[in-house]
Simulated scan of single mutants.
Amino acid sequence: MIRTLQPGQRCEVWTASVGGAAELVLSTEDLLLEAPNWTLDGGSLILNGAGRLWSFDVGGRTISEVPLNGIPDLNNDHVLAPDGKHIYLSANDGHIYRAALEGGAAERITADDGSFHFLHGVRPDGAELAYVGIEAGDFTQPGRLLTIPASGGKATGVDVGDGHCDGPEYSPDGQWLYLNTESFTALPGHAQLARVQVDGTGFQRLLGSDTVDWFPHLSPDGQLASYIRFPGGTVGHPADLPVDVVLVSTGDWTTPVDTWSLFGGQGTLNVNSWSPDSTRFAYVAYPFSDSETTKD
């Protein structure tokens, strides 16, 4: 299903600096954009909207569609390849694709194996993808952490418990997968942040909280991380809620460096949105006329 803005709602794309400042770089009432990726040259953000892929020139404040073909409508799970020239994309048919950032034909990576595939991570050497598999596209079933060669092939499961997991993303050194998981509690939802070594060992919780925490994203230098914090009791990562975007040091996940409060959720921070120099990251808010985007 393709999301659209509700009456009176607008889409705002923001960049936040590690020093605490936030800047509104795009506001529109015409297009619901989601899940920014920052390009390797530092010049653009890549987002999805209306089932298509878009490139936003941060300096020039212009947006244009990336002309792809041979791919169904896109969702908000997309990650840039380490070469800076390609992107891996999840589509609404449940498959993962690879395409050039300049556009053109897309190549399907995943096989018809009875699962939906939701991409979140590309190993730093570009050889492997990490994704969440949901059997038969049945969203009453928990998502499972899997990896697959970037060229396609046999998938390998990584055990992170019985709870639903999401957002698996490689650390900059390629040794860890960072994710959120419901394996630490029997409470409905209540996702918490965790990591596991790529060989499946060392599974550990990063932060115990009363909130519902999703999508940990490490900065390219590995020193900082961003994630999105939903109110306690939230099931899944729904749209249109008061949420917080949180910045932490990877040396101490318990003490926020900064926090930005906004109206959003789904689409705000689903994928890694750090700039290549680790000084900024991007996020998306979806305020109505009576809501605000603020910094705590």
Rank of each mutant, 00 (worst) to 15 (best):
V245R: 00
G163Y: 08
F203H: 14
P220G: 05
D41H: 11
V243T: 09
R195K: 13
E102K: 14
L101H: 06
N37W: 03
D277P: 08
V13D: 09
L218P: 02
G8K: 03
T156W: 01
P168R: 06
S219G: 03
W260Y: 13
F203K: 10
S64H: 11
D258N: 15
G103R: 06
D162T: 14
V248Q: 02
G202W: 09
A130G: 08
D290R: 13
D159T: 15
R195W: 02
T259R: 15
S171W: 05
V235Y: 03
Y170P: 06
A22G: 00
T156I: 12
L193W: 00
G51P: 04
P72I: 10
F118V: 08
C165F: 02
L224P: 03
P287G: 10
G233Y: 01
D30H: 14
I96M: 10
P72W: 02
T279P: 03
A16K: 01
V243R: 00
V160C: 12
T15P: 06
I71M: 01
G189V: 00
G42N: 06
R280E: 14
A99S: 09
S55F: 08
G157I: 01
L269P: 03
K154T: 15
S278K: 12
S209H: 10
K154V: 13
T185V: 08
N48R: 15
P7D: 12
R108D: 04
L241I: 11
A127C: 10
V284C: 09
D77R: 08
V257A: 13
L24Y: 02
A239D: 12
L47P: 00
G233N: 03
P149A: 05
R205C: 15
V122W: 02
P124C: 08
T156H: 15
G202P: 07
N272H: 02
S64Q: 13
V212W: 01
G42D: 03
I134P: 04
S226G: 07
V212R: 04
S289K: 14
E169P: 03
E182T: 12
L74G: 11
L193P: 01
V132D: 05
H78M: 11
G153D: 06
L224I: 05
Q6L: 12
A130V: 08
G59S: 15
H117K: 12
P287L: 08
D173F: 07
D296S: 13
L269A: 06
G167K: 09
R229M: 07
G103Q: 07
V13P: 04
G200Y: 07
V212S: 12
G189C: 02
G152A: 04
T211G: 09
W260K: 13
I228H: 00
D210T: 14
W253R: 11
D296N: 15
H217K: 14
V248L: 01
F288S: 10
T201I: 07
L269F: 10
G51T: 09
L26H: 11
S261T: 13
R3L: 12
G152R: 00
P36F: 06
F139P: 02
Y227L: 02
